[in-house]
């Protein structure tokens, strides 16, 4: 039966349906509702464990440790909290802990504008932690997709043995839409890692070899390990080449937008073609290249100052136009005028 569900609830329900049984978090706008739902759910379902941690550092460490202990674990936060979680994320990649981190973005840097939506943590997801990591990240744009992609994130985590990021924004978290959660079916990848207490392994954040021996001054071993990590993530990412492409016959211009911005620019679909990446990381380089070939102009519309645009430029080896919706302002009229101005400037 269809009912009104918020993005936050859809994320939580998606996690429950895919078998999540551990949540650790710390209150922060706009994902506190997920924390609250988890608290209530754990009271009613003793098999589901919950921790309201003392800070996001602890929440993230607890999520990864619970995952190693055998739980399907997740946490939810926003930009400033995600910054604190970076340490644990790096650790999670090295100890190969499958889990999900939800980051519903608000205007930053720092405290920024806590109740206003933004899309400004994209670079933080990819490059926030020390060293090279190859995270997978998905970004839905509807409540129904929040539900399904949460399940996808858990599955991809099990396959890639790493923390997978589910991105959202303050708009999406608090967006209510009619969806039928109970009636939809989800694909579930079962647990892939042996839980703690079944061996003599060492899960260390230090560089190590396959036996778990700490190797902190061996470049050959490190290079091998990192290449394997990257290959594994690439292999898993190939299974989830998610994007949405709305071609417009008469248009020479391709708009690239995702999350809430893609909902706003959808109104322009009769004038411009629209490409919406759903898998944000690894960047959909091949798909971007294919789609962009038939367009003279490429415009990236996003809630930050050109973070995804820089990835598009890298993928296409060319400059692209940027429309930056900053400070929580996502007005269609403004975006439209920016696009028009931009196109005028380059001669349409």
């Amino acid at each position: 039966m269809k009912r009104l569900v918020s993005g936050n609830e859809a994320i939580f329900q998606g996690a429950i349906r895919v078998g999540a049984n551990y949540f650790a978090g710390y209150p922060i706008s706009p994902t506190s509702e997920i924390l609250q739902q988890a608290a209530l759910y754990s009271e009613e379902n003793p098999g589901f464990r919950f921790l309201q941690a003392e800070d996001e550092i602890a929440a993230a460490i607890a999520t990864i440790s619970a995952s190693l202990a055998g739980a399907k674990a997740f946490t939810a936060t926003s930009g400033p909290g995600f910054t604190l979680m970076q340490e644990a994320l790096g650790w999670g990649h090295v100890v190969e802990a499958p889990c999900v981190f939800v980051n519903s973005m608000r205007v930053g840097p720092s405290t920024g504008m806590p109740t206003q939506p933004a899309q400004s943590d994209l670079l933080q997801v990819k490059a926030g932690t020390a060293g090279d990591v190859y995270p997978l990240a998905f970004y839905p744009n509807s409540v129904e997709e929040c539900f399904r992609l949460t399940a996808t994130a858990f599955n991809a985590a099990e396959e890639s043995l790493s923390p997978v990021i589910l991105l959202a924004d303050a708009f999406l978290s608090h967006l209510y839409e009619l969806v039928d959660l109970e009636g939809s079916t989800l694909h579930i990848v079962p647990r892939t890692k042996d839980p703690l207490g079944s061996g003599q392994r060492l899960f260390t954040g230090a560089a190590h070899d396959k036996m778990g021996n700490v190797k902190t001054s061996d470049p050959v071993n490190y290079r091998e390990w990192l290449r394997e990590l990257k290959d594994r993530h690439d292999r898993v990412a190939e299974r989830y080449p998610f994007f949405e492409y709305l071609p417009c016959k008469n248009s020479e211009t391709l708009l690239i937008a995702f999350g809430m911005t893609s909902r706003v620019v959808l109104a322009l679909k009769d004038r411009f073609s629209i490409f919406r990446p759903i898998r944000i990381y690894p960047v959909l380089e091949k798909e971007l290249e294919e789609v962009s070939q038939s367009y003279r102009h490429i415009i990236v519309v996003e809630g930050n100052d050109g973070q995804y645009a820089s990835w598009v430029e890298c993928a296409l080896c060319q400059k692209v136009m940027k429309v930056s919706c900053l400070g929580g302002g996502f007005k269609l009229k403004w975006i439209q005028s920016q696009i028009e101005d931009g196109l005028k400037g380059v001669g349409r």
Binding site: N21, Y22, A24, R49, L51, A53, I57, A58, I61, A62, T63, I64, S65, A66, L68, A69, G70, A71, E87, A88, G90, W91, V95, P195, L196, G197, S198, G199, Q200, R201, L202, F203, T204, G205, A206, V214
Partner: peptide
């Protein structure tokens, strides 16, 4: 089976493990 956590975090890790198992 042993965990070597980031600096300062073993208590949180231990608590989470005990909670789950």
């Amino acid at each position: 089976d042993a965990l070597h956590t980031p600096h300062g975090r073993p208590l949180t890790a231990a608590e989470a493990i005990k909670t789950v198992r």
